Simulated assay, not measured.
Amino acid sequence: MGTMMTDTFKPTAKMAANAKKGLKLREEFHRGGTDVGKHRAEQLAAQEELTVEDVKSMHSYFARHEVDKKGKSHEWGSDSDPSAGYVAWLLWGGDEGKEWADRHAAQLD
């Protein structure tokens, strides 16, 4: 395992804020995200330490869902009519979550 610092996988405040926003929009609009995404958002919102598996799962989530930004139903980035994809994206930490997961996943390979 080497001498990896234990706080390597702590979500950032911005990721936590995105996750909280995602949870709020999900509750308000009843769309976006699975139970897995909701659980991930709760972890991020609490800024809980994530495992290597969590990081890898976030990395693959974002790789699969980048295409959701092009979705036509509802609006990406909207607080008044958010697309399900946008809500789910926020649940996983938003753009900051993607950058964070990509960076950490690259270190793991």
Rank of each mutant, 00 (worst) to 15 (best):
G37D: 10
T51Q: 05
E66R: 12
E49I: 14
V55R: 06
E28W: 02
D54Q: 13
K24D: 11
H39Y: 03
M58Y: 14
H39D: 06
R26D: 07
M58C: 15
S60T: 15
K38M: 07
V67L: 12
Q47M: 13
V52F: 09
K70V: 00
A19I: 09
K56S: 12
T51C: 07
T51A: 08
A16P: 15
K21T: 13
K69L: 01
K20R: 14
K69N: 00
Y61E: 04
M58V: 04
K21W: 09
F29A: 02
E66I: 14
A17K: 13
Q47P: 03
R40S: 04
E49C: 05
V67R: 15
R40Y: 08
M58E: 11
L50E: 08
A17V: 10
E48R: 15
H65S: 08
Y61M: 03
D54P: 12
T34Y: 08
K24N: 06
Q43G: 00
L44A: 02
D54K: 13
H59V: 01
Q47I: 04
R40M: 15
R64A: 09
K38E: 12
K70R: 10
K70T: 08
A17D: 14
V55W: 04
Q47G: 04
S60F: 09
G22R: 09
F29V: 00
G37A: 07
K56V: 13
K38G: 04
V36K: 08
E42P: 01
V67M: 12
E53C: 06
S57W: 12
L25I: 05
S60W: 10
D68C: 00
T34R: 05
G33L: 01
E66V: 15
A16N: 09
F62K: 00
K70H: 08
T51E: 05
F62T: 00
R26I: 05
H30R: 11
K56A: 12
G33N: 03
E27F: 02
Q43D: 10
N18L: 03
K69R: 13
A63H: 04
Y61F: 14
G33M: 02
L23T: 08
N18Y: 11
L25E: 06
A17Q: 13
K70P: 00
D35R: 10
A63D: 11
R26A: 15
L25G: 07
F29D: 01
A45D: 02
L25C: 06
V52Q: 13
E42S: 05
K38H: 05
E28A: 12
V52H: 09
E49T: 14
E49P: 00
E66M: 07
A41T: 04
L25S: 07
A16M: 09
K70L: 08
V52D: 11
H30I: 01
E27H: 07
A45N: 02
A63I: 05
A17W: 04
E48C: 10
V36E: 08
T51H: 06
G22Y: 11
V55K: 07
L50C: 08
V67Y: 13
R40T: 15
K70F: 07
R40D: 04
R26P: 10
H65R: 09
R64S: 09
S57T: 13
R64Y: 03
A63R: 10
E53V: 15
T34V: 04
A41Y: 05
T51M: 06
A41H: 03
V52I: 14
E28P: 00
E48W: 01
Q43L: 15
H59F: 14
H30D: 13
E48A: 15
D54I: 12
G32W: 05
R26C: 10
